[in-house]
Design a protein around this nucleic acid. Structure first.
Lengths: 102, 102
DNA sequence: GTAGATAAGTTTGTATTGCAAACTAGTTTT
DNA sequence: AAAACTAGTTTGCAATACAAACTTATCTAC
């Protein structure tokens, strides 16, 4: 396992975007979260949240289920196993960088 | 001090680029480093290294001195106090994120 | 019953990037 | 004197992050 400073350059770019890292960090603590909840927690605009969720879904990191709460749309998101593993690897990469630097 | 998950979205974007974080991490360990040394250590192309160094300089994070080694150009880089402080803050932000997530 | 506000999203427009490839200027080798 | 090497800088382009505009449906006030 290569473990020098420059291994940070191989970091997962999808998760290295702070907004997405925060979204995934939240999803790592709950079994699922809806769009409105995520928007309140992240402070993102609806548009940007939507775009980030789509990217996470395309990468297979989250699963999105579209349904209804009463008469309104409900978008439920949950972290996949792939997503959880990627997030752990990402945290590990950050941890190593922080520990290896001064 | 705000210290929840979403404070990661306020991370220093200049340092949050892995290539630049690595450059700065290297410069944090030496009093100065030249272009050729940095290129070997980072594995960046000359073009991209040049561009990243220019950005770090524009932000006041590094100081660049152009001189000569014998007959060849020598570009010496050193971290400024501002740059060192920014890097410490960046490391702290990463550390907090890693510690606050699961 | 219809005009306007609200809910829950998606799509579009744009300016900024990170990266690869091309270029520059001088020096050494053949 | 042509080719190759050194030490960089500039250019071209595709990707992306964010804001603003748009969509579709529901609720409220008149």
């Amino acid at each position: 396992m290569m473990s020098d400073l420059r291994s940070l350059t191989e970091v997962d770019r999808l998760l290295h975007e702070p907004s997405r890292a925060v979204i995934v960090a939240i999803l790592a603590t709950v079994e699922s979260a809806d769009f409105v909840f995520l928007q309140r927690e992240t402070n993102l605009t609806k548009g940007n949240l939507s775009a980030h969720l789509t990217k996470l879904q395309e990468a297979g990191y989250i699963q999105i289920e579209k349904t209804f709460r009463g008469k309104y749309p409900l978008t439920l998101c949950r972290l996949t196993d792939t997503g959880r593993q990627a997030f752990q690897a990402y945290r590990q990469k950050l941890r190593q960088f922080v520990e290896q630097t001064k």
